[in-house]
Amino acid sequence: MVYKIRDKETGKVYEVTIDEETNEITVYDVKTGKPVKTVNMTIEELKEAGYEVEPV
């Protein structure tokens, strides 16, 4: 599923895909559409880390 996340401190917005089964999150560069990095976190962990998470 695709989400937009926003860093509450910097205001930067990222587009991510989240595999609900493995909790693998792939972060994409919004301008190029290319993957930047992959992390292993849940949506709740993202929120605790200071991100706003919205489904696209």
Score class of each variant (00 low, 15 high):
E20V: 12
A49N: 09
G50S: 03
K12D: 12
I18V: 14
Y51P: 01
Y14H: 02
E15L: 15
G50Q: 03
E9F: 13
K37D: 05
V56A: 10
I18L: 07
N40V: 13
P55L: 13
E48P: 01
V36W: 09
K8Y: 06
L46F: 07
K47G: 09
K4N: 05
K31H: 14
N23M: 08
K31M: 14
G33W: 06
E24T: 15
I25V: 08
V56E: 07
Y28T: 07
V2Y: 15
R6E: 05
K4R: 15
Y14V: 02
G33M: 06
V30T: 13
P35V: 15
V36Y: 09
D19K: 07
P55A: 12
T26G: 02
V30H: 13
V16Y: 03
K4E: 07
V16H: 00
P35T: 08
E24L: 15
D7G: 01
E15T: 15
K12V: 12
G33Q: 06
P55T: 09
A49I: 09
E52V: 07
K8N: 05
V53D: 02
A49V: 08
E9P: 01
P35I: 14
T10M: 01
V36E: 05
E54A: 07
Y3W: 09
Y14R: 00
K4G: 01
M41S: 06
I18M: 06
E45Q: 13
M41G: 10
E52D: 11
K37N: 07
K8S: 06
D29E: 06
I43V: 07
E54Q: 08
M41I: 10
V27Q: 04
V16T: 01
E48R: 12
K8C: 11
I25L: 10
R6M: 10
L46S: 00
E52S: 05
N23A: 07
K31P: 10
E9G: 08
P55I: 11
E24D: 07
K12C: 15
E44Q: 11
K47V: 11
E54W: 15
G33C: 12
D19P: 00
M41T: 06
E24V: 14
V13K: 03
D7K: 02
E52T: 07
L46V: 08
P35E: 08
K37L: 15
Y14E: 00
A49Q: 10
I43M: 09
Y14W: 13
I25M: 12
V2A: 11
Y3K: 08
M41H: 04
T22L: 11
G33Y: 03
E21Q: 11
L46D: 00
K8L: 11
E20I: 13
V30I: 13
A49W: 11
M41P: 01
A49R: 10
T26D: 01
K47R: 12
E21D: 11
E15M: 15
T26Y: 06
T32H: 03
E54F: 14
N40D: 05
T32S: 08
V53C: 06
Y28H: 08
T32R: 02
V13P: 01
M41W: 07
V27R: 01
T26S: 04
G11I: 00
T38P: 02
E52N: 04
A49S: 11
Y14K: 00
D19A: 05
L46E: 00
D29V: 02
I5Q: 00
V30E: 14
T38D: 04
E45A: 09
T10K: 02
Y51L: 03
T42E: 01
E45Y: 06
P35K: 13
V16F: 07
M41L: 08
T17M: 10
T10S: 09
E45M: 11
D7W: 03
E52W: 06
V13L: 07
K8V: 08
D19I: 06
Y51M: 04
V56P: 07
E52I: 08
K37M: 14
K8P: 12
V27M: 15
T22I: 07
V13I: 12
T17W: 11
N23T: 06
Y3I: 12
K12R: 11
Y14A: 01
R6H: 07
V2F: 14
G11C: 05
I25S: 02
K8W: 04
K37W: 15
N40K: 14
I43E: 02
V16N: 00
E20H: 11
N40W: 13
A49H: 12
T42V: 01
V2M: 13
I18W: 15
I18E: 02
T10W: 01
T22D: 03
K37C: 15
E54R: 05
T26C: 05
I43T: 03
T17S: 07
Y28V: 08
E45W: 06
M1A: 10
I25T: 03
V53R: 02
K4I: 15
V30L: 07
E45I: 06
E48A: 13
K31F: 14
K8Q: 06
T22A: 12
E21P: 04
K12A: 13
V56C: 10
V13N: 03
K37R: 12
T32W: 04
T42K: 05
I25W: 04
M1K: 15
T10Y: 01
E9Y: 12
L46H: 01
G50N: 05
I5E: 00
Y14C: 15
G11K: 03
Y51D: 01
Y28E: 01
T17P: 00
N40E: 08
L46R: 00
E24Y: 13
D19G: 03
K8E: 02
K8I: 10
N23P: 03
D29T: 01
G33V: 01
N40R: 14
M41C: 11
E54I: 11
Y51N: 02
L46Q: 00
Y14T: 01
R6F: 10
T32L: 05
I25D: 00
T38W: 14
I43D: 00
T10N: 06
G33E: 02
E9W: 10
I18Y: 15
E15R: 09
V39A: 06
Y51I: 02
K31W: 11
P35Y: 13
Y3V: 08
E45T: 06
E48T: 10
I25C: 06
V53E: 02
E15I: 15
